[in-house]
């Protein structure tokens, strides 16, 4: 369908930047951007938004249902749930970043190198991927945390140890696709070093799916962090963390449902924010002229 190709190729030339701006003006992205930027604000300046001290007991207001004074209610020790949910942003956004960032960096470097150089390293990597994806992700992470001991730092280590394989697998596949393009061969013919070809030519063209995956993964990391917090393997009480909050409310689910529901909503909303932004970024980051 050569005709249709030219037809599509010829249209964007007139309106510069239009497709990208358009992708950014979609309601999905705007909503996601709003959620994420508020989340970051809450994570950086929790004291400015939280109406109460998150750890202050108020024995006059134990398990109060949501009211004007306590919009999200209070817990069994009289702590303001809204304040605790807000302070938990600090921990959970941190989890979103630290539990994914190092895995991504390691995965991208390893994935690029094995894809480009191939050989025995690639074969070994293939086996490692097979082994890793055989186990459910959570089980593997829990196993590592069990060895290292509970706590946030150990959780980051555990998640990174497991998660980098997924990033590496994705990067490897993307780089392999890019390597079928002649510009990679052209780089070799020009006598460029493999480091230059990988990191300056191939990788920039492989970032779109990586960024999208990273966004989704940050949402999943929050879920994972909360799950581990819930299980007592991640953040430790009395630190406010959504999973910990849900776990605390577990025993009172019939009498004080807000204790678990409110942090649950926070998880869902933040996760949604990451997904929406990731989705739109895929369109924005794609090189123009490519389909």
């Amino acid at each position: 369908m050569t005709q249709l190709d030219t037809l599509q190729a010829s249209t964007p030339q007139k309106k510069k930047l239009h497709p990208r701006v358009k992708a950014l003006l979609r309601p999905g992205f705007l909503l996601g951007f709003f959620i994420l930027s508020s989340s970051i604000l809450l994570a950086v300046f929790p004291w400015a938004f939280a109406p109460y001290d998150p750890n202050a007991f108020d024995f006059n207001a134990i398990q109060k249902s949501p009211s004007w004074a306590h919009p999200f209610g209070t817990d069994n020790l009289g702590r303001d749930t809204l304040s605790r949910v807000i302070w938990a942003y600090q921990v959970d956004m941190q989890i979103a970043f630290f539990a994914t960032f190092f895995a991504m960096v390691i995965g991208v470097v390893v994935g690029s190198l094995v894809a480009y150089h191939g050989g025995i390293a690639d074969v070994l990597f293939g086996r490692l991927v097979d082994v890793t994806i055989t186990f459910p992700f959570l089980v593997l992470v829990i196993a590592v945390v069990a060895v290292l001991g509970p706590g946030l730092t150990n959780m980051y280590v555990a998640v990174t140890l497991v998660q980098w394989v997924y990033y590496a697998r994705l990067t490897r596949a993307e780089i392999m696709t890019q390597m079928t393009s002649d510009y990679a061969s052209a780089g070799r013919v020009m006598g460029y070093s493999s480091t230059r070809i990988i990191f300056r030519h191939l990788l920039p063209n492989a970032t779109t799916p990586l960024i999208t995956y990273w966004m989704t993964d940050m949402a999943l990391a929050i879920l994972l962090g909360s799950s581990l917090g819930y299980l007592g393997l991640g953040a430790q009480p009395p630190q406010a963390e959504w999973g910990v909050l849900i776990a605390e409310g577990r025993n009172f689910i019939t009498t004080a449902w807000w204790m678990s529901l409110m942090p649950g909503i926070a998880i869902v909303v933040t996760g949604l924010g990451f997904s929406l932004v990731g989705d739109s970024l895929a369109d924005v980051l794609r090189p123009r002229g490519a389909s």
């Binding site: 393009s181 002649d182 510009y183 061969s185 052209a186 030519h201 063209n205 090189p287 002229g289 490519a290």
Partner: peptide
């Protein structure tokens, strides 16, 4: 190379 669309880094 042959393919004018893939021989340049986009």
């Amino acid at each position: 190379f042959q393919d004018p669309y893939s021989s340049l880094n986009p």
